[in-house]
């Protein structure tokens, strides 16, 4: 078996009052064994519905899926034994201590903390000094580490992490991804979702997802290479005015803020495009203009795909 996760045309709809909302419009993808696979998309993209279907806590309305070779509907019990799931919302027992939570989950799966300690050691040592503290009293970062330890304690074949880094600061996010890399080296297949586009490059493959549809699916570097235009970065002394002016320039197809620069695509990619623009901007009193061709990032690709 080469695939840890196979998703075929999965559909999910919800009743919201009189309306029917489609959360997943028949999506398909595969995750290879040992792969670190990212679902990248904003809130409301359908990421959580998908996770809940794959971890057998929600039934799909159509299509089929297998996890570790088992069908998500028929073999749900087998799947529950071999996957770890860390939901986006903290779901451990707040009234139990760190250690009690961990041994509770170990016991559920007929194992002990000692038996699989090696797997969680890296993460658990950081919260072990607080093992007698109730989970409800932990800080956000510590809760996250405990939840990950609990999701790993039965040595799952596939690990599902639903937005583990949402609302987490950039330093802690970096540390979290380093933990994931080490878990991957131990052979665990990881499916992780995130709204942060910069985390996409840390995955082996990604699916860009929006409103229940997959926009693109590939290795991150392949997605960025397939960006259909030459992208430019531009800045000047007055960046907000620059944004208004570049958008008013007749040969600009799109221009949007991107950190300290604006990113720009020309309508017609002719030879004079750069000089024409610079002339136009100088007439509007811009100074310290810097214009340079750049490679697109995943976020640029996402923006392009949303058009």
């Amino acid at each position: 078996m080469d695939y840890s996760v196979e998703v075929k045309n999965i559909k999910k709809t919800y009743q919201a009052g009189k309306e029917i909302v489609t959360a997943l419009h028949g999506i398909s993808f595969d995750v290879k064994q040992g792969e670190l696979f990212g679902l990248i998309g904003p809130d409301g993209a359908g990421k959580t519905s998908l996770f809940r279907i794959l971890t057998t806590v929600l039934l799909p309305d159509g299509g089929s899926a297998t996890v570790n070779g088992f069908d998500v509907v028929k073999d749900y019990k087998k799947i529950r034994n071999c996957v770890g799931y860390m939901p986006g919302k903290f779901s451990l027992y707040q009234d139990l201590t760190v250690e009690e939570n961990l041994s509770f989950f170990a016991t559920l799966f007929n194992t002990t903390i000692e038996e699989n300690y090696e797997l969680i050691k890296d993460i658990y040592v950081q919260i072990e000094p607080f093992k007698t503290r109730r989970a409800g009293k932990l800080s956000g970062g510590m809760k996250q580490k405990l939840a990950l330890s609990c999701a790993l304690i039965h040595k799952p074949a596939v690990l599902f992490l639903d937005e583990p880094t949402t609302g987490v600061d950039p330093v802690s996010r970096k540390e979290f991804w380093e933990m994931l890399k080490r878990l991957k080296q131990q052979g665990i297949t990881i499916v992780v979702s995130t709204p942060y586009m910069d985390e996409a490059t840390l995955c082996d493959r990604i699916a860009l997802i929006q409103q229940g549809k997959i926009l693109s699916i590939d290795k991150p570097e392949k997605i960025t290479k397939s960006f259909p235009h030459q992208l430019y970065a531009i800045k000047s002394a007055e960046i907000y005015q620059l944004l208004k002016d570049v958008n008013a320039f007749e040969n600009s197809l799109s221009c949007y803020a991107f950190g300290e620069y604006l990113h720009l695509i020309f309508k017609e990619e002719h030879d004079n495009r750069e000089t024409d623009l610079l002339k136009f901007l100088k007439m509007r009193d811009h100074s310290d203009i810097e214009l340079k061709p750049i490679d697109a990032s995943i976020e640029d690709c996402f923006i392009e795909l949303l058009k």
Binding site: D43, E163, T166, G167, I303, L306
Partner: peptide, 20 residues
């Protein structure tokens, strides 16, 4: 307080237009 967490990249930029 973290007004754009989880918002898609296009909407995030529209949000910043409102801030400006």
């Amino acid at each position: 307080d973290e007004p754009t967490g989880g918002v898609d990249p296009v909407t995030r930029r529209q949000f910043w237009d409102l801030i400006y």
